[in-house]
């Protein structure tokens, strides 16, 4: 599904990703953990096509296509989704119009006609119930005045609407209360399928109790330094990152 090889990326003069390797097969859920500033969000942004970053080396293969050749819109339409660590507020654009443009963008890419108003609203209803997104939030401006938790729920709602092939969730659990965490995790689990993959970035093992990963990777200083199964997350929770820096890297 996704094959990242020796990926190097920098912003301005600063190199942040320093040769990152990761292969994700269809249906797999991978978790990435790592200290603040290690490059997790940078990886997510580079995958989503943010132009602020310069890719200085390596390759990303997405369903046998060169992901790095596509612009952000095309990546999304081809089935990549990024749930932002900090979702963006767009005053004056209603959530629902925003989503319809997104859904129609994808449909256009697939050679389909724009979705009918009624079908769209039914889809919204169905997907919003998946993450228990309050009906009022759908009609408000995109993320404007949403609480931290509501923003994260909205990200998952958008993901459910767009039904991506590969979703990157960047700290979707931070800022969620215990109930919301369960709701969001259930939403993600409901979408797990043999032909859909996830990359879950998190700081807390707790999320992985709900969304059980196939693999856990540790990202330190722009590289994946250690990979394991879900038990690795437990070990990290208990021991922190220092032992990795000392034992593994040294």
């Amino acid at each position: 599904m996704v094959n990242i090889k020796e990926l190097k990326a920098s912003i301005g003069e600063t190199q942040i990703l320093k040769g990152l390797n990761l292969e994700i097969k269809p249906g797999e859920v991978h978790a990435i953990m790592g200290p603040n500033g290690s490059g997790k969000s940078t990886l997510a942004s580079v995958l989503a096509g943010r132009e602020d970053y310069d890719v200085t080396g390596g390759s990303v293969d997405f369903e046998s296509r060169d992901l790095l050749e596509m612009d952000a819109t095309e990546r999304a339409r081809s089935g990549l989704f990024l749930a932002f660590q900090y979702p963006v507020e767009i005053p004056g654009v209603s959530n629902i119009n925003f989503m319809r443009a997104a859904v129609n963008g994808k449909r256009e890419h697939e050679g389909l006609d724009p979705i009918k108003g009624k079908d769209f609203l039914n889809l919204v209803k169905e997907k919003a119930s998946l993450v228990e997104l309050d009906g009022r939030l759908r009609n408000r401006s995109v993320n404007e005045g949403f609480s931290g938790g509501e923003k994260k729920r909205n990200e998952i709602f958008q993901m459910a609407m767009l039904e991506p092939r590969f979703a990157v969730l960047d700290e979707t659990d931070s800022g969620l209360d215990i109930d919301a965490l369960r709701i969001v995790a259930n939403g993600v689990n409901a979408m797990r399928s043999p032909d859909r993959s996830f990359l879950v970035i998190t700081h807390y093992q707790r999320l992985l109790d709900y969304i059980v990963p196939d693999f856990v990777h540790v990202l330190v200083d722009g590289k994946i330094v250690l990979s394991g199964d879900k038990d690795l997350a437990l070990k990290l929770e208990e021991k922190g990152y220092d032992w990795i820096k000392e034992d593994v890297i040294a």
Partner: peptide, 22 residues
């Protein structure tokens, strides 16, 4: 906001039109 919209599969010019309207 433009990048956010594009990351949802909205084309650049449409995303701009949306921001204009807002």
């Amino acid at each position: 906001a433009l990048f956010y919209a594009r990351s949802r599969g909205i084309g650049e010019s449409e995303a701009k039109a949306m921001l204009v309207h807002a």
